[in-house]
């Protein structure tokens, strides 16, 4: 990909750079935010004692993060990827906010 871009026009190169930048941003920050929100929410769903559930969710978080990163670079469209990431974040964030209102902290 990087090698092929050399032969392309400046415009095509700019598009390719934007594509990579979008994916990198979505993967790095979006991936971390998704993993963080999952780690925050999962303990409330797992049928385990609170401290156990927190540890289990934290252990899983890196697998979630890695999955999002791989997905970000595997999927076809960078723009659609960003939409998906924002959508997932909105849903998870709303869930976290609502369960926070419901008094989920010890």
């Amino acid at each position: 990909m990087a090698t092929a871009s050399k032969s392309r026009t400046p415009r095509a190169r700019a598009t390719a750079a934007l594509d990579v930048a979008l994916r990198t941003l979505a993967a790095t920050f979006g991936g971390y935010a998704i993993a963080a929100l999952c780690t925050a929410l999962l303990p409330r769903l797992l049928p385990l004692p609170r401290n156990e559930a927190v540890v289990a969710a934290t252990l899983l978080s890196f697998a979630i993060y890695a999955t999002v990163v791989l997905w970000a670079f595997a999927t076809a469209s960078a723009w659609r990827l960003c939409g998906w990431v924002l959508g997932i974040l909105a849903v998870l964030g709303a869930a976290a906010w609502l369960s926070g209102l419901a008094g989920a902290r010890l």
């Binding site: 780690t39 925050a40 303990p43 252990l59 978080s61 890196f62 010890l106």
Partner: peptide, 16 residues
């Protein structure tokens, strides 16, 4: 995992 609570403190933060 050795530094998980540093990298991912959110499970603890959101539940305690």
């Amino acid at each position: 995992v050795t530094l998980a609570t540093l990298y991912m403190p959110w499970g603890i933060a959101a539940n305690y």
